[in-house]
């Protein structure tokens, strides 16, 4: 790539990229999630069997990633709405992004025990 051609959109561009990536990931999970839930119409055993995979340590880590994607998409989506509808939104878009990142970090720290605690007890023994 020739020098000087990379678009340097800084916070605004990277939050837009992250919003797209997390949105696509969540949408693909949604298809899988509707399908696995549909197994309640097959039999209780079929449903409980597929849900048991959600309780394994590896999938618990994926769930933590899903929570990370959803929380970022939700918080940044509220920021996008503020940029579009609040008269001072565009002026404060950077400050709002760092607020989003801060709230996201706090929530992700808070989600460690509830989401990963079960997996930790399986791996390390209770």
């Amino acid at each position: 790539m020739p020098a000087g051609t990379l678009y340097r959109g800084r916070e605004g561009m990277w939050s837009w990229v992250a919003h797209r990536v997390t949105g696509v990931l969540i949408f693909f999970f949604l298809f899988v999630h509707v399908l696995d839930t549909a197994l309640v119409r097959v039999s209780p055993e079929a449903y409980d069997k597929v849900v048991s995979t959600y309780k394994t340590p590896v999938v618990a880590v994926l769930e933590y990633g899903l929570v990370a994607a959803i929380l970022f998409h939700a918080l940044n989506g509220l920021r996008v709405i503020a940029v579009d509808f609040w008269s001072k939104g565009p002026r404060y878009q950077k400050q709002m992004l760092w607020t989003v990142v801060g709230v996201w970090l706090v929530l992700m720290l808070g989600a460690i025990y509830p989401v990963l605690g079960h997996a930790a007890r399986v791996v390390f023994g209770s």
Binding site: V40, D48, V51, Y54, P114, V115, H118
Partner: peptide
């Protein structure tokens, strides 16, 4: 995922 034991309580009976 958070309340009442997180994902470990989810099953047919819970649904």
């Amino acid at each position: 995922l958070v309340l009442d034991g997180g994902v470990s309580k989810v099953g047919f009976a819970f649904v």
